[in-house]
């Protein structure tokens, strides 16, 4: 009886230790994955912020104004408006 108990107990100990280490290892791996993902998100966010700023910089009216005028465009003149009904 005593011997049986002792064997069961030690087996359980070994089994739980193995399970624990397996879990710990898994957790470490997942944590590393989470960290990598978080870093990727951060990088993506900072890239988005930089690109947003860049797009706004490229789209600043001063620049568009000059580019448009180089293409021969100008602000619309009153006589350039027409009624849809009047179109041929």
């Amino acid at each position: 009886m005593g011997r049986f108990l002792a064997i069961v107990a030690s087996l359980m100990t070994v089994a739980s230790a193995v399970a624990l280490y397996a879990l710990k290892h898994d957790t470490r791996r997942l944590e590393a994955e989470v960290q990598a993902t978080e870093r990727a998100i951060e990088k993506a966010q900072s890239d988005i912020a930089a690109l947003k700023a860049e797009r706004a910089w490229l789209g600043r009216p001063e620049r568009i104004d000059n580019l448009a005028r180089e293409q021969g465009l100008a602000p619309i003149r009153p006589e350039q408006y027409g009624r849809i009904g009047a179109a041929p």
Partner: peptide, 10 residues
């Protein structure tokens, strides 16, 4: 001890 190990592990 086993119970504690299991608790910590899970």
């Amino acid at each position: 001890v086993t119970a504690q190990l299991v608790r910590l592990g899970t």
